[in-house]
Computed example of a mutant assay.
Amino acid sequence: MKNFDTKVFSKRENLYLSSIFFLYGLSILSLAPRTPDIKANLSVNNGTFGTLLSAASVGSIIMLLIGGQIVNKIGAKRALQISSAVIATAFITLSHTSSPLIYLIVNVIAGGGISIYHVASTGHTLHRQDEVGKVILPKLHGAFAIGATSTTAIAFFISEYVSIAWHITVLIIFVYLSTNFSIHKLSSTFSSNITEPVKSDASFFKQLKFKVNWFLSLGFFCGQIIEFIVTDWATLFGKEVLGMGASIATLCYMLYLIGVIIGRFSIGWALNHQSEQFWIKFGGVVGGAGFIGMLILSVALVEINQPIAYFLALFGFFLSGLGSAAMAPIFFSIAGRVLEGNNLMAVAQLTFINTILIFLAKTVLAWVAEVTSITVSLCISGLITCALFYFGKIGSKVRI
């Protein structure tokens, strides 16, 4: 096997590393378009189904508590291999089972596997960024977004003709084999020793209690909230609020993903022209204020001019994706610097705090949508995103 020059980020390495992120997006969002089939398999009501879906957060939170230590101990390569196997086994089981209890248990395990994969892949990428002196994480997050869009497109075309069991089984087996092929090809780029030791699990809990950078964590939350709320409510907004047809309503989420893809593939270029501070604030203005403005106008005009209302709504979701696209890679890079280069711990800690905050926010905003309207819930997420204009000060003032 040909080794890579670890001081150079080659096109071949970029291809294999991008494929790891692309396949990650392709797999972990594969069940989302087929939730009606899952619910039918389980024969449960909406309340029970929502509870079962949220179980993944439990596994995610548990593993994020110790994810940094696990990856540090066994290495990013081994962690990716194990977590990809856990995800594959769990998702195939979730697509076949008709037992709510089995679904609950396996979904918790799936959440844990996803968290370990996230910590290992992002931590390794930040390590490579340090070695080559080049920003590479944003484009890899773009590859993830393309994977997420692709899995939605696949489901759109085959859902009426292929059962969820066959769809997910074939897709996940392909993803698992392809992921491990890419990991094998990248073997020489993984660190051969542990350069960021963690003395004990207790040390992480001490960091969690006393050393969490809350300004950074809250800023990251403001940059991420719109992604999760749009994912939950975009299609329903188009269908129930604006009266779009079922197919057209899916364009709300599709335009959001297109904005994310454009933003993540452009941020490397953007950081050469403006600072992190500028782009974080840009995210607040465009992804927050721009999104709110377009939604309010679309709702106001839907009874007067439906085509214009549809266009404004779709443009608003595009702006939300464009504005929030670079927040995750930028904040992860900042976290690595703030925690003195301890990349794995930075990713695990920041993601852990954010997972809890997002879980609480999603629950509250779901009830806001129930008591008021979906529009209000989406606008509140936009207002939170606007706070990035304040939190932008944590970013670097100089161009990268």
Rank of each mutant, 00 (worst) to 15 (best):
N41H: 12
V71H: 02
K209I: 08
K211P: 02
A76M: 12
I194G: 06
Y390P: 02
L297P: 00
V170M: 13
A76S: 15
S298I: 03
K73I: 07
Y16Q: 12
K73S: 13
V108L: 07
I296C: 07
Y117R: 07
I61W: 04
I154T: 09
V371T: 14
A326D: 01
T195I: 13
P197A: 03
I92N: 06
T351H: 03
N343L: 06
I82P: 01
S83D: 07
G284K: 09
I154L: 15
I380M: 05
Y256K: 03
F91D: 14
G341Q: 03
I280H: 05
T372W: 15
G293H: 07
I261C: 03
Y103P: 08
I158H: 05
A325K: 04
V347R: 02
G259D: 00
T189V: 08
I330N: 04
S377E: 00
C386L: 14
I82N: 01
R78A: 12
I70Q: 00
L255S: 09
I356H: 11
S320D: 03
G50M: 08
P33I: 10
I358T: 09
S159R: 11
L177K: 07
V338W: 09
W233N: 03
S191C: 07
L360S: 10
A300Y: 11
Y253L: 12
